[in-house]
């Protein structure tokens, strides 16, 4: 039976009342480790350069450079920690919502009926921490693809199964 009732916009399901779930705390460790590794490499590079390059300018600037990199590392890691608690997700009956970002906050929603395929990817570190990333793809190159990083593997597999069933119409 076809019906076309007027919708009361105030009774629509709203994203204001969603209880978002945070990603695993463990993932913060991975993020910090990754950032540290990058800055560590840069500092090592600087020290090697100190041994190799003999121009006076570089030598006199060396400690400034190193401390600048150190400061940058501190800011980046502080920001990572502060921004971490903004990484949240929610699975509703009909859609997947993911939000992240402190300086620029994004709330992205993908209706389950528009999902093309789902992938679970795990980096080496993520395997050590028993974490996983859930990649949700929509159609079109312009589509907003959702990547929910830092889920517990169990959780990721559960979501994957739930979504896959929904997408394939078996649930």
């Amino acid at each position: 039976m076809f019906s076309n009732q007027q919708i009361d916009l105030n009774i629509l399901p709203s994203i204001d009342v969603i209880e978002f779930k945070s990603v695993s705390r463990q993932y913060l460790n991975i993020l910090i480790l990754n950032r540290c590794a990058i800055f560590f490499l840069i500092i090592i590079g600087l020290f090697i350069a100190k041994q190799m390059v003999n121009t006076g300018l570089f030598q006199s600037l060396f400690w400034y450079l190193t401390s600048a990199v150190g400061l940058l590392a501190f800011i980046t890691i502080a920001y990572t920690i502060l921004a971490f608690k903004t990484r949240k997700y929610a699975i509703r009956e009909q859609d997947v919502i993911y939000t992240e970002g402190l300086l620029t906050n994004t709330i992205a929603a993908v209706p389950i009926s528009r999902i093309q395929h789902i992938e679970i990817s795990r980096s080496w570190l993520a395997r050590k921490f028993k974490l996983a990333t859930l990649n949700i793809f929509t159609a079109g190159e312009s589509g907003i693809d959702l990547n929910i990083e830092g889920l517990n593997l169990n959780e990721a597999e559960k979501i994957n199964e739930f979504l896959s069933k929904k997408v394939n119409g078996t649930a």
Partner: peptide, 22 residues
Amino acid sequence: QSVAIKQSIFQKHRHIASLHIA
């Protein structure tokens, strides 16, 4: 296909956001 709301920290201050529709 998907909808997203983006809000920078300056926009948040003024309760303003941008909507992206794909």
